[in-house]
Amino acid sequence: MDEEYQELLGLHDLSFRQAFVRFVCQAPEVLEAMNSAQVEAPNFQPSTKTIIRYWTYNKHPRWPVIAEPRKWAFDLTREIKAKYTRVRGKTRVVRKARKASSPEVQEYYLAVFGRYEALISQLAMGKLVAKGRDRPIAEETLIPSVLWTYTHTRVGIESCTLGRTNTRRWIQVAEGLRIYHPSKLKDEACLPKQAGSGRPKKYLWDEAYDALVLKLGQEGFPETGAELVSMFLDCFQCMRGASVPDAEQARTWLKNKKTQLWRRVVDGDG
């Protein structure tokens, strides 16, 4: 049993927050980088709590699942100049100056974000799977692995929630996120589908439909078939690298493959 497999097994049946703490905050390279940073910058006191709370500011609601480690490390450690304002003829400091942090601090942030990116990649590849609920009393369901590749997907580490952002608005689509290892799930229907050896599909219909189900659970059902088709196409647009069908293809697929849903929206059935 290799080291990576053992590490992933250790995350089975943990909440997303617990998995994040174990995989990211307690990773050997992160702890080593933390110690190096504290030696060079004694006033720098990072902790699990500060890591988790970092990405909860209004400017950047929740952590994006697509990490950009080097950009974040630069933003966090670049020099910030003082800002002043005039109030009743007197100069007042709005923001104090901050010197650029040491290379050791930059390496610390790179280690944290690098591990976070590795965790998300395991979910995107299906080496780990996540489950959540679209509402508090709903049954726990599998989170489609493709959601972990969406540019606008956000994850609340402290609250164990998953959502999407539309401009600056946070829309929750699942809560109570838990991490599982596929080999330990008894229900094989919950396992991510393995790619076959044949020709790859042009359109990821099933994956986009999974995303549509989450979208409907959060936003409610549309009033017309055209709106449903538009929502379905939006799911394709958000899937990185996926081909997008035209509206007529999407309408035909929904009418033929998801007849009950189509009738519910168009005819008011069900």
Score class of each variant (00 low, 15 high):
83 K>I: 09
83 K>R: 07
84 Y>V: 11
84 Y>Q: 04
84 Y>A: 09
84 Y>D: 04
85 T>V: 04
86 R>Y: 07
86 R>H: 12
87 V>Y: 06
87 V>L: 09
87 V>Q: 08
87 V>P: 03
88 R>M: 02
88 R>G: 00
88 R>Y: 02
89 G>A: 00
89 G>Y: 00
89 G>T: 00
90 K>C: 11
91 T>N: 04
91 T>P: 01
91 T>A: 06
91 T>C: 05
91 T>M: 09
91 T>Q: 03
91 T>L: 07
92 R>M: 13
92 R>A: 10
92 R>F: 07
93 V>G: 04
93 V>K: 04
93 V>P: 06
93 V>S: 06
93 V>E: 10
94 V>C: 05
94 V>I: 14
94 V>L: 13
95 R>Q: 14
95 R>T: 13
95 R>D: 07
95 R>N: 11
95 R>G: 03
96 K>L: 11
96 K>G: 15
96 K>I: 08
96 K>D: 13
96 K>H: 15
96 K>N: 14
97 A>K: 14
97 A>R: 12
97 A>D: 09
97 A>E: 14
98 R>W: 08
98 R>A: 13
99 K>I: 07
99 K>V: 06
99 K>M: 11
99 K>C: 09
99 K>R: 15
100 A>N: 11
100 A>F: 08
100 A>T: 12
100 A>I: 10
100 A>E: 15
101 S>L: 12
101 S>K: 11
101 S>A: 14
101 S>N: 14
102 S>T: 15
102 S>G: 13
102 S>H: 12
102 S>A: 11
103 P>A: 05
103 P>D: 14
103 P>R: 04
103 P>F: 02
104 E>S: 15
104 E>A: 15
104 E>Y: 13
105 V>Q: 01
105 V>W: 02
105 V>D: 03
105 V>N: 03
106 Q>W: 09
106 Q>E: 15
106 Q>G: 12
106 Q>A: 06
107 E>W: 11
107 E>H: 14
107 E>L: 09
108 Y>R: 08
109 Y>D: 01
109 Y>K: 02
109 Y>C: 00
110 L>Y: 05
112 V>N: 04
112 V>S: 05
112 V>Q: 03
112 V>E: 02
113 F>S: 06
113 F>Y: 13
113 F>Q: 06
113 F>K: 02
113 F>R: 05
113 F>D: 06
114 G>M: 02
114 G>E: 02
114 G>W: 03
115 R>M: 08
115 R>W: 12
117 E>S: 13
117 E>Y: 12
118 A>Y: 15
120 I>W: 04
120 I>P: 01
121 S>N: 12
121 S>E: 10
121 S>F: 09
122 Q>F: 10
122 Q>N: 09
123 L>T: 01
123 L>P: 00
124 A>I: 08
124 A>F: 06
124 A>R: 04
125 M>W: 08
126 G>W: 07
126 G>V: 01
126 G>P: 03
127 K>L: 10
127 K>N: 12
128 L>A: 07
128 L>Q: 02
128 L>Y: 03
129 V>Y: 01
129 V>P: 00
130 A>P: 01
130 A>Q: 02
130 A>I: 06
130 A>W: 04
131 K>E: 14
131 K>H: 10
131 K>R: 14
132 G>T: 02
132 G>H: 01
132 G>S: 04
133 R>Q: 13
133 R>F: 05
133 R>E: 10
134 D>P: 00
